[in-house]
């Protein structure tokens, strides 16, 4: 495993830890999109179907379990925890997220490496992950007040896929890996969606001001 891949996984893990910290310590999910969190549950559930059938490494299995358990528990907290759920910005989190699921599934049926159930679902998870952040970005734009934990959560989440891009370049050059257009293009789209957010995040960080996205 190369340094970019490890750094990518660690920022991904860090983003989830930041979100859980917010939920546990502040008992708040203000500014967090339940729609995006539900999409991540679907992403991990469809991608990690191989968890019981294919063994890669201890690291791989543990990380998959961590991502599955944490994504399910975040959704559970936002929906059912008696304090946390009252902080959810229901009225502003109105992105119709199922409208992302259907086109991603159709695209996975059309463009995939091999037409099998597992391969189509794996491809679907990549397409869906690429756009899963959209409800969250829309909610951020509507929020007058973005707290630090929420801003950092989205930043680490974007950094994760950005680092994966370097990982793929490295693997292609150093390990002579094959062309893998489906994850590469999905990952590129996913990272590009954060460009605007990154711009304002870094700007506010430099000026030591509170993060605010223009409406």
């Amino acid at each position: 495993m190369n340094v970019f891949r490890l750094a990518g996984d660690m920022t991904h893990l860090l983003s989830i830890m930041v979100l859980l910290l917010k939920i546990h310590s502040m008992k708040s999910c203000a500014g967090i999109s339940l729609k995006t969190q539900e999409l991540y549950v679907l992403v991990f559930a469809t991608r990690y179907l191989d968890i019981f059938t294919t063994y890669f490494s201890f690291y791989n299995t543990v990380m998959k379990i961590v991502f599955l358990v944490t994504s399910f528990s975040i959704v559970w907290y936002m929906r059912h925890h008696k304090v946390v759920r009252q902080t959810y910005d229901r009225d502003q989190d109105t992105f119709r997220h199922h409208l992302l699921v259907i086109p991603c599934f159709l695209l996975a049926l059309l463009i995939n490496h091999r037409f099998t159930v597992r391969e189509v679902l794996w491809t679907f998870s990549l397409y869906l992950e690429a756009v899963a952040i959209l409800p969250q970005l829309v909610l951020l734009q509507r929020s007058r007040n973005i707290d630090n934990l929420t801003g950092n959560y989205v930043f680490f989440l974007g950094a994760y896929r950005g680092l994966y891009l370097f990982n793929w370049i490295y693997r292609y050059m150093a390990e002579k890996s094959q062309l893998r257009w489906i994850p590469w293009i999905s990952g590129l789209v996913q990272t590009a969606l954060y460009a605007d957010f990154f711009y304002y995040y870094i700007k506010s960080w430099k000026k030591r001001e509170k993060l605010q996205l223009p409406a």
Binding site: D9, T54, F56, N60, S177, Q178
Partner: peptide
């Protein structure tokens, strides 16, 4: 197998 080999990523 190519499709398996690429799935060691998360």
């Amino acid at each position: 197998d190519h499709s398996i080999a690429s799935k060691d990523e998360l």
